[in-house]
Protein backbone atom coordinates (compact mmCIF):
# COMPACT_ATOMS: atom_id res chain seq x y z
CA UNK A 1 0.00 0.00 0.00
CA UNK A 2 1.02 3.61 -0.22
CA UNK A 3 1.45 5.94 2.70
CA UNK A 4 0.31 8.79 0.49
CA UNK A 5 -2.22 6.68 -1.37
CA UNK A 6 -5.92 6.60 -1.89
CA UNK A 7 -7.03 4.94 1.31
CA UNK A 8 -4.98 7.27 3.46
CA UNK A 9 -6.51 10.35 1.86
CA UNK A 10 -10.06 9.09 1.94
CA UNK A 11 -9.84 8.09 5.55
CA UNK A 12 -8.14 11.22 6.86
CA UNK A 13 -10.11 12.61 9.77
CA UNK A 14 -11.07 16.27 9.47
CA UNK A 15 -8.53 18.82 10.58
CA UNK A 16 -8.34 19.31 14.31
CA UNK A 17 -9.45 15.79 15.20
CA UNK A 18 -6.92 14.64 17.76
CA UNK A 19 -4.56 11.90 16.95
CA UNK A 20 -4.61 8.97 19.30
CA UNK A 21 -1.55 7.00 20.35
CA UNK A 22 -1.56 3.39 21.52
CA UNK A 23 1.19 0.86 22.28
CA UNK A 24 0.09 -2.76 21.89
CA UNK A 25 2.03 -5.46 23.73
CA UNK A 26 1.73 -8.12 21.03
CA UNK A 27 2.12 -8.26 17.28
CA UNK A 28 -1.38 -9.77 16.95
CA UNK A 29 -3.00 -6.84 18.73
CA UNK A 30 -0.95 -4.37 16.68
CA UNK A 31 -2.23 -5.95 13.45
CA UNK A 32 -5.82 -5.94 14.79
CA UNK A 33 -5.59 -2.27 15.72
CA UNK A 34 -4.30 -1.39 12.26
CA UNK A 35 -6.88 -3.57 10.52
CA UNK A 36 -9.81 -2.05 12.42
CA UNK A 37 -9.00 1.51 11.38
CA UNK A 38 -7.65 2.26 7.93
CA UNK A 39 -6.48 5.73 8.98
CA UNK A 40 -4.26 4.25 11.71
CA UNK A 41 -0.53 4.03 11.04
CA UNK A 42 2.26 2.01 12.69
CA UNK A 43 5.12 3.94 14.26
CA UNK A 44 8.65 2.58 14.66
CA UNK A 45 11.21 5.32 15.33
CA UNK A 46 8.92 7.95 13.84
CA UNK A 47 11.60 9.85 11.92
CA UNK A 48 9.73 9.57 8.60
CA UNK A 49 6.15 9.68 9.92
CA UNK A 50 6.83 12.83 11.94
CA UNK A 51 7.91 14.61 8.74
CA UNK A 52 4.88 13.40 6.76
CA UNK A 53 2.54 14.56 9.54
CA UNK A 54 4.31 17.88 9.95
CA UNK A 55 3.93 18.75 6.28
CA UNK A 56 0.31 17.61 6.20
CA UNK A 57 0.82 14.66 3.84
CA UNK A 58 -0.53 12.35 6.48
CA UNK A 59 -3.01 12.90 9.26
CA UNK A 60 -3.57 9.52 10.88
CA UNK A 61 -6.49 8.95 13.23
CA UNK A 62 -4.25 6.91 15.47
CA UNK A 63 -0.61 5.95 15.76
CA UNK A 64 0.15 2.40 16.77
CA UNK A 65 3.53 2.52 18.54
CA UNK A 66 5.48 -0.69 17.97
CA UNK A 67 8.28 -0.32 20.50
CA UNK A 68 6.82 -2.76 23.04
CA UNK A 69 7.26 -5.46 20.37
CA UNK A 70 11.02 -4.90 20.25
CA UNK A 71 11.84 -8.14 22.10
CA UNK A 72 10.25 -10.15 19.26
CA UNK A 73 10.81 -7.80 16.34
CA UNK A 74 14.26 -6.51 17.23
CA UNK A 75 17.69 -8.03 17.38
CA UNK A 76 20.31 -9.38 15.03
CA UNK A 77 20.94 -13.12 14.80
CA UNK A 78 21.64 -15.98 12.41
CA UNK A 79 18.73 -18.18 11.33
CA UNK A 80 18.80 -21.94 10.62
CA UNK A 81 19.66 -21.26 6.96
CA UNK A 82 22.76 -19.38 8.16
CA UNK A 83 21.18 -16.17 6.93
CA UNK A 84 21.55 -12.97 8.90
CA UNK A 85 18.19 -12.27 10.56
CA UNK A 86 17.61 -8.58 11.13
CA UNK A 87 14.58 -7.70 13.27
CA UNK A 88 12.36 -4.98 11.81
CA UNK A 89 12.58 -2.86 14.97
CA UNK A 90 16.38 -2.90 14.97
CA UNK A 91 17.56 0.70 14.78
CA UNK A 92 19.81 1.71 11.90
CA UNK A 93 22.44 2.61 14.49
CA UNK A 94 22.35 -0.90 15.99
CA UNK A 95 22.89 -2.34 12.51
CA UNK A 96 25.74 0.10 11.90
CA UNK A 97 27.51 -0.90 15.13
CA UNK A 98 26.86 -4.66 14.85
CA UNK A 99 29.97 -6.81 14.44
CA UNK A 100 27.87 -9.56 12.92
CA UNK A 101 26.59 -7.21 10.20
CA UNK A 102 30.08 -5.81 9.64
CA UNK A 103 31.39 -9.34 9.08
CA UNK A 104 28.79 -10.59 6.61
CA UNK A 105 27.57 -7.34 5.05
CA UNK A 106 30.34 -4.73 5.21
CA UNK A 107 28.78 -2.74 2.34
CA UNK A 108 25.64 -2.27 4.43
CA UNK A 109 27.66 -0.84 7.33
CA UNK A 110 29.56 1.49 5.01
CA UNK A 111 26.25 2.81 3.68
CA UNK A 112 24.78 3.13 7.18
CA UNK A 113 27.56 5.56 8.12
CA UNK A 114 26.04 8.04 5.65
CA UNK A 115 22.30 7.52 6.21
CA UNK A 116 20.91 10.76 7.67
CA UNK A 117 22.98 11.45 10.78
CA UNK A 118 23.70 9.73 14.11
CA UNK A 119 20.48 11.01 15.74
CA UNK A 120 18.29 9.83 12.90
CA UNK A 121 20.01 6.42 12.89
CA UNK A 122 19.51 6.17 16.67
CA UNK A 123 15.74 6.40 16.20
CA UNK A 124 14.94 5.07 12.72
CA UNK A 125 14.23 1.34 12.37
CA UNK A 126 15.06 -1.07 9.55
CA UNK A 127 11.37 -1.98 9.13
CA UNK A 128 10.38 1.66 8.87
CA UNK A 129 13.20 2.31 6.40
CA UNK A 130 11.77 -0.41 4.12
CA UNK A 131 8.02 0.07 4.68
CA UNK A 132 8.27 3.81 4.06
CA UNK A 133 8.83 3.10 0.36
CA UNK A 134 10.79 6.29 -0.23
CA UNK A 135 12.87 5.61 -3.37
CA UNK A 136 15.74 7.69 -1.96
CA UNK A 137 16.50 5.33 0.93
CA UNK A 138 20.08 4.05 0.92
CA UNK A 139 19.69 0.47 2.10
CA UNK A 140 17.09 -0.98 -0.34
CA UNK A 141 19.40 -1.13 -3.40
CA UNK A 142 22.04 -2.93 -1.34
CA UNK A 143 19.55 -5.36 0.21
CA UNK A 144 18.01 -5.92 -3.21
CA UNK A 145 21.39 -6.74 -4.76
CA UNK A 146 22.19 -9.04 -1.83
CA UNK A 147 19.02 -11.03 -2.47
CA UNK A 148 17.32 -10.20 0.84
CA UNK A 149 13.73 -11.09 1.66
CA UNK A 150 11.37 -9.50 4.14
CA UNK A 151 8.90 -11.24 6.42
CA UNK A 152 5.51 -9.63 6.93
CA UNK A 153 2.58 -10.41 9.23
CA UNK A 154 -0.93 -9.17 8.54
CA UNK A 155 -4.58 -9.95 9.21
CA UNK A 156 -4.46 -12.78 6.63
CA UNK A 157 -1.34 -14.42 8.01
CA UNK A 158 2.35 -14.18 7.36
CA UNK A 159 4.50 -14.35 4.21
CA UNK A 160 7.98 -13.76 2.87
CA UNK A 161 8.38 -10.99 0.30
CA UNK A 162 11.55 -11.05 -1.85
CA UNK A 163 12.97 -7.55 -1.82
CA UNK A 164 12.57 -7.17 -5.58
CA UNK A 165 8.81 -7.45 -5.00
CA UNK A 166 8.56 -5.10 -2.05
CA UNK A 167 8.72 -1.74 -3.78
CA UNK A 168 6.00 -1.17 -6.35
CA UNK A 169 6.51 2.52 -7.03
CA UNK A 170 6.93 5.95 -5.51
CA UNK A 171 6.23 5.48 -1.77
CA UNK A 172 4.33 2.32 -2.71
CA UNK A 173 5.06 -1.10 -1.32
CA UNK A 174 3.53 -4.56 -1.67
CA UNK A 175 2.49 -4.40 2.00
CA UNK A 176 -1.24 -4.62 2.51
CA UNK A 177 -3.03 -2.34 4.94
CA UNK A 178 -2.34 -3.57 8.49
CA UNK A 179 0.53 -5.74 7.29
CA UNK A 180 3.74 -5.22 9.29
CA UNK A 181 7.32 -6.11 8.43
CA UNK A 182 8.76 -8.30 11.17
CA UNK A 183 12.24 -9.23 9.95
CA UNK A 184 14.65 -9.30 7.08
CA UNK A 185 16.70 -12.32 6.01
CA UNK A 186 20.02 -11.62 4.36
CA UNK A 187 21.47 -14.63 2.51
CA UNK A 188 25.10 -15.62 2.96
CA UNK A 189 27.17 -14.01 0.20
CA UNK A 190 29.53 -16.37 -1.61
CA UNK A 191 33.14 -16.35 -0.46
CA UNK A 192 35.18 -13.85 -2.42
CA UNK A 193 32.24 -11.51 -3.02
CA UNK A 194 33.28 -7.91 -3.56
CA UNK A 195 30.71 -5.18 -3.15
CA UNK A 196 30.17 -1.45 -3.04
CA UNK A 197 27.51 1.18 -2.60
CA UNK A 198 27.82 4.57 -4.25
CA UNK A 199 25.69 7.41 -2.98
CA UNK A 200 25.70 10.31 -5.37
CA UNK A 201 24.25 13.51 -3.94
CA UNK A 202 23.68 16.37 -6.36
CA UNK A 203 23.06 19.25 -3.95
CA UNK A 204 25.20 18.83 -0.83
CA UNK A 205 27.25 16.06 0.78
CA UNK A 206 24.66 15.18 3.44
CA UNK A 207 21.69 15.38 1.06
CA UNK A 208 19.44 12.51 0.00
CA UNK A 209 20.97 10.67 -2.96
CA UNK A 210 20.09 11.67 -6.52
CA UNK A 211 21.38 8.21 -7.43
CA UNK A 212 22.38 5.10 -5.51
CA UNK A 213 24.38 2.26 -7.10
CA UNK A 214 24.90 -1.10 -5.39
CA UNK A 215 27.22 -3.64 -7.05
CA UNK A 216 28.26 -7.14 -5.99
CA UNK A 217 30.33 -9.71 -7.86
CA UNK A 218 33.10 -12.19 -7.33
CA UNK A 219 35.95 -13.16 -9.59
CA UNK A 220 36.30 -16.57 -11.10
CA UNK A 221 39.87 -16.68 -12.42
CA UNK A 222 40.01 -13.50 -14.48
CA UNK A 223 36.28 -13.30 -15.13
CA UNK A 224 33.35 -11.69 -13.31
CA UNK A 225 30.81 -14.02 -11.72
CA UNK A 226 27.57 -13.65 -9.78
CA UNK A 227 27.14 -10.03 -10.82
CA UNK A 228 24.33 -8.15 -9.11
CA UNK A 229 23.69 -4.48 -9.79
CA UNK A 230 20.89 -2.32 -8.43
CA UNK A 231 20.09 1.37 -8.87
CA UNK A 232 17.98 3.58 -6.63
CA UNK A 233 16.90 7.17 -6.04
CA UNK A 234 16.99 8.15 -9.72
CA UNK A 235 13.80 6.17 -10.40
CA UNK A 236 10.49 5.74 -8.58
CA UNK A 237 11.77 2.57 -6.89
CA UNK A 238 15.02 0.63 -6.48
CA UNK A 239 15.62 -1.80 -9.36
CA UNK A 240 17.97 -4.67 -10.25
CA UNK A 241 19.32 -4.34 -13.79
CA UNK A 242 19.25 -7.92 -15.08
CA UNK A 243 20.35 -6.92 -18.60
CA UNK A 244 23.46 -5.17 -17.31
CA UNK A 245 24.24 -8.04 -14.94
CA UNK A 246 24.03 -10.48 -17.86
CA UNK A 247 26.41 -8.47 -20.03
CA UNK A 248 29.00 -8.44 -17.22
CA UNK A 249 28.66 -12.02 -16.02
CA UNK A 250 31.40 -14.33 -17.28
CA UNK A 251 33.31 -11.48 -18.92
CA UNK A 252 36.82 -10.22 -18.31
CA UNK A 253 36.64 -6.84 -16.54
CA UNK A 254 37.91 -4.01 -18.72
CA UNK A 255 37.45 -0.30 -19.17
CA UNK A 256 35.43 -0.81 -22.33
CA UNK A 257 33.21 -3.46 -20.74
CA UNK A 258 32.40 -1.20 -17.79
CA UNK A 259 31.78 1.71 -20.15
CA UNK A 260 29.37 -0.38 -22.22
CA UNK A 261 27.59 -1.63 -19.07
CA UNK A 262 27.17 1.95 -17.84
CA UNK A 263 25.74 3.03 -21.22
CA UNK A 264 23.25 0.15 -21.11
CA UNK A 265 22.30 0.96 -17.51
CA UNK A 266 21.57 4.59 -18.33
CA UNK A 267 19.12 3.62 -21.07
CA UNK A 268 17.62 0.65 -19.19
CA UNK A 269 15.70 2.70 -16.63
CA UNK A 270 13.31 5.62 -16.67
CA UNK A 271 14.77 8.27 -14.35
CA UNK A 272 12.34 10.47 -12.47
CA UNK A 273 12.93 14.23 -12.39
CA UNK A 274 12.95 15.72 -8.90
CA UNK A 275 15.00 18.03 -6.66
CA UNK A 276 18.02 15.80 -7.34
CA UNK A 277 17.98 16.58 -11.06
CA UNK A 278 16.17 16.27 -14.39
CA UNK A 279 15.64 12.98 -16.21
CA UNK A 280 18.46 13.78 -18.66
CA UNK A 281 20.85 14.74 -15.86
CA UNK A 282 20.14 11.55 -13.94
CA UNK A 283 20.65 9.47 -17.08
CA UNK A 284 24.06 11.07 -17.47
CA UNK A 285 24.86 10.50 -13.78
CA UNK A 286 23.89 6.82 -14.12
CA UNK A 287 26.31 6.53 -17.03
CA UNK A 288 29.13 8.08 -14.99
CA UNK A 289 28.47 6.46 -11.63
CA UNK A 290 27.72 2.90 -12.77
CA UNK A 291 31.13 2.84 -14.47
CA UNK A 292 32.82 4.27 -11.38
CA UNK A 293 30.90 1.87 -9.11
CA UNK A 294 32.13 -1.12 -11.13
CA UNK A 295 35.72 0.16 -10.90
CA UNK A 296 35.28 0.76 -7.16
CA UNK A 297 33.96 -2.79 -6.66
CA UNK A 298 37.08 -4.18 -8.39
CA UNK A 299 39.13 -2.52 -5.62
CA UNK A 300 36.80 -3.64 -2.78
CA UNK A 301 38.05 -6.33 -0.37
CA UNK A 302 36.83 -9.86 -1.03
CA UNK A 303 34.50 -11.36 1.57
CA UNK A 304 35.94 -14.27 3.54
CA UNK A 305 33.68 -17.05 4.69
CA UNK A 306 33.18 -17.98 8.36
Amino acid sequence: MSILGRSARRANPPEGVPLDYIEPATLGVAVELLASDEAARPLGGGTALMLLMRYGFLRPSRLVGLRRLASDLGGISVNDRHELRLGALTTLRDLELSRQVARSAPVLVEALHIVGNVRVRNAATLGGHLAHGDPHQDLPPILLAMGARAHAVGPRGSRWIPLDQLNLGYYQTALEPAELLTELALPVQPEGTQGSYTKFTAVSAEDWPALGVAVFFRRDQDRLAGVRLALSAAMDRPQRLAGVEAMLDGERPSESLFQAAAETASSAVEPMADGGGSTAYKREMIRVHVRRALEKTMRAPALRSG
Binding site: Y21, L43, G46, T47, M50, L51, L63, G65, R67, R93, V118, R119, V120, N122, A123
Partner: peptide, 13 residues
Protein backbone atom coordinates in the same frame (compact mmCIF):
# COMPACT_ATOMS: atom_id res chain seq x y z
CA UNK B 1 21.87 7.22 26.45
CA UNK B 2 21.45 7.93 22.75
CA UNK B 3 21.05 11.27 21.01
CA UNK B 4 17.85 11.80 19.03
CA UNK B 5 16.37 14.71 17.15
CA UNK B 6 13.75 15.99 19.60
CA UNK B 7 11.74 17.47 16.72
CA UNK B 8 11.25 14.03 15.11
CA UNK B 9 10.70 12.18 18.36
CA UNK B 10 7.16 11.85 19.70
CA UNK B 11 6.96 13.03 23.31
CA UNK B 12 4.94 9.92 24.24
CA UNK B 13 7.96 7.78 23.34
Amino acid sequence: GRAVSGCLYLAVL
